[in-house]
Design a protein around this nucleic acid. Sequence first.
DNA 1: TATGAATGAGGCTTCATTCAT
DNA 2: AATGAATGAAGCCTCATTCAT
Lengths: 189, 189, 189, 189
Amino acid sequence: MSTKDLILSTAKDMISEVGFHKMTTANLAKRADISEGTIYRHFESKEDILQHILDTFDEKYQALAESCRARMDKGPLSIEDLMGSHFAFLDANAADIKIVLGAYSILDATRRSMARFIERMRALFEDYLVHGHENGILREVPLKPTGLILANMFFGLMRIKLYWPEIDDFSTEAVEFCRRSLTLPEAWK
Amino acid sequence: MSTKDLILSTAKDMISEVGFHKMTTANLAKRADISEGTIYRHFESKEDILQHILDTFDEKYQALAESCRARMDKGPLSIEDLMGSHFAFLDANAADIKIVLGAYSILDATRRSMARFIERMRALFEDYLVHGHENGILREVPLKPTGLILANMFFGLMRIKLYWPEIDDFSTEAVEFCRRSLTLPEAWK
Amino acid sequence: MSTKDLILSTAKDMISEVGFHKMTTANLAKRADISEGTIYRHFESKEDILQHILDTFDEKYQALAESCRARMDKGPLSIEDLMGSHFAFLDANAADIKIVLGAYSILDATRRSMARFIERMRALFEDYLVHGHENGILREVPLKPTGLILANMFFGLMRIKLYWPEIDDFSTEAVEFCRRSLTLPEAWK
Amino acid sequence: MSTKDLILSTAKDMISEVGFHKMTTANLAKRADISEGTIYRHFESKEDILQHILDTFDEKYQALAESCRARMDKGPLSIEDLMGSHFAFLDANAADIKIVLGAYSILDATRRSMARFIERMRALFEDYLVHGHENGILREVPLKPTGLILANMFFGLMRIKLYWPEIDDFSTEAVEFCRRSLTLPEAWK
DNA sequence: TATGAATGAGGCTTCATTCAT
DNA sequence: AATGAATGAAGCCTCATTCAT
C-alpha cells in the first residue's frame, strides 16, 4: 500500500473512531507509523485528508447508484432489493459513512460534500419512485420530496446504527414502513 | 438574568451558530461581556456548559411530551396535530436542537444525552401508535421500531431544516408519507 | 514594567542581536521569563511585535525631527549641530535602528515603515538645506535629491557602525565631506 | 549549463526576488526542475549556496575594480566615469547586488562577505582619490575615511534603487554631490 | 463574586537535510 | 549523478484552565 493510501486508511479509521477533531496530526502519524512531516508530503492540510475521504466515498456511492439504476433498467425492482443494496453498502463502508455523517459540521466544504451525498441518494430514490410507478408497484407521490424523505430515513438509520449500536436494528421495519406508504393498496393484499 | 443564565444563553447562541469547537471560552466571555474566569465560577468546564444546555433542553422536551400525552388522553389526536406540535417546538427551540443534533459526536456524555432524547421521542410516538390504534385511526404496527422510525424521520427533518436551509421544506410531505404508512386503508378513502 | 513593555524590550534586544528570523517565540518567551502564550495575549503575531517596535521608533524620530526644526526656527544651525543631534539619537537608539535597518527585507509592512523613516529624514534634511541657504551658509542645491543623499549617507553610516563595529568610526569625516559639498566656497575660507 | 550552475543561477533569481528565507530548497528544486536531493550533491547546505553566490560576485567585482584601476593608470579619470562604470555594473548585476545587500544579516559568514565587498570598493575609491589628487583634479582629503564614505554612498544608492524603485533616481545628483565635495575649488569654476 | 493576565500543553505546519534506489 | 519520499526538529499560534487580586 502506498504511503498516501496508508495515511488515508489510517485517518479513516481514526476519524470514524474518535472524530475529526480528536484525530491529531501527531497521533495519526504515530498510528500510521510515519513521521508527521510525511503527512504533508501527501496532503495539503489535515482538512485536505478529510476532503479526499469524502471524495473517494462519493465515487463509491456513485458506483452503487449506477448499479441500482442498471438493475432498474432490466426490470421491476422491489423496495426490499433497493434498500438491501444500500444496507450492504452501508455495512461495507461503515467507517466512511460515519465520517460523512459527522462531516457537515466541520467545514463548509464538507457540509457541501454531505449535501451532495444527500442529493445523489435523493435523485436515485426519485428515479426509483418513477420506475416503481411505471411498473405499477408504487402509487403516485410527489417525487422530489418523497425521494428526500427516503434518503433522510436512510441517513437516520445509518446514524443510529453507527453511533448507537446498542439500539436494536430496525431496518426491516423501516423498509416495511416505507413499503406501506409507497405501494398501491391493491398491491399488498 | 443571572450570570449563569447569561453564560448559558450566550453559549447556546454561539454553539448553534458556529459549533462547539469554534466557540472558545475567550469569545464566549467577550460576547457575554464577562471575564473568562467567571465562566469557571459557574461551570466546571467548557464541556459542562454543553451538558447543561442539553439537560435544560431535555426538560423542555419532556414538557412537550407530557402536553402531547395529555391531549391524547382527552380524545383522538391526528398525526398532523402531533407532528404540528413538534414542528412548533422545533421552531421555538431551533438553537437548542441544532446543538443537540451536533453534540453526539463530541463527548460520550453528549452522545448519551442525544440517545435519551431519541428514546423520549420514540416513547411518545409509541404511545401515540397505541392511542391511534385504540381509536381506530391507525393500523397495527410493531410499536418500538415504528416509534423509532418516526423519531428518526423527525430528526432528519430537523437536521436538514437547520443545516441546509436552502433545501425546500418537505415536512408536509413527510407527514403525509407517515400518514399513508400508518393509517388504516379504509380510514383514508 | 508592564508585561507588554517587557516583551517589547526583550524582543528589541533579541532582534537587534540575532535578527528577526532567529528570534523565535520560544526563545523570546524564555528570555523574558514568561510563557509563549503570554506573547499572544499582548500581540497578534510575531510580526506584530516588530511592527510595534517600528511604530514606536517612528514616533521617537518624529520627536527628534521636531526638535531639530525648532532649533532651526530659532536661528542658524550648523551641519555639525544637525548631524550631531542625529549621532546622539543613533547612540541612544542603537537597538531600534539596527532593527529598522534590517526590517525592509522581512515584510511588506516593514519595508514601508523603513521607507517612511527614510522619507522623514529626507524631509528634515531638505528643510535644513532651505534654512541653510536662507541663512547664507549653504549653496543652492536640488532640494529633494540632496535631502535624500544626506539621509542615505546617514543610513549607511548607521549600518556600518552597527553591523561592522570593527570598522573605524568615520562620522566626523562624513560630516566634513557633506560640509564641503554644501557650504558656499566663500563661507569656508 | 551544468547542474551546479543551474542551481546557482536559479537560486540567485529566487533570492533576489523573494529573499533568502523565503526561498526553500523545495521551491528552488521545483523551479530549477531538479530534485531536492540533487541540491545536496552540489552544495553542502542551503547557506552554502548563498556563500557561493557571494564569492562569485566578489570575483566579478574584483574584475571591475581591476579594469577601473587599469583605466586610471592610463590617465586622468573623472568621477563621472568612475561612478558610471559602477552604475553600469550595478545594472548588469542587479540580482547579485540585491543578494549582497540583504545577506549581511543572515549569517556571520555572509556579514564578512559584505564587509569584504565594502572594503574592496573602499580601496578602489581610495586609489581613485590618490589618482585624482595626483592629477590635480581632487583636493586632498583623508583617504581611508573618504573612500569609505564614497563606498557607503554607493551602497545606499543601490539599496534604494533596488528596494524602493518607486523613489526617483537620484544618482546624477549624488555624483554631483560628491564632485562638489572632492574637486578643487578652482577646478570647478 | 468577578476579573483578566498568565499558563503550558498541544495543535498544525514548514523545511533543511538524509538515504535507499 | 539524480531522485524524491521520508524525516523530525522546530516554528508559530490557540485555548481551556488557573490564580492572585
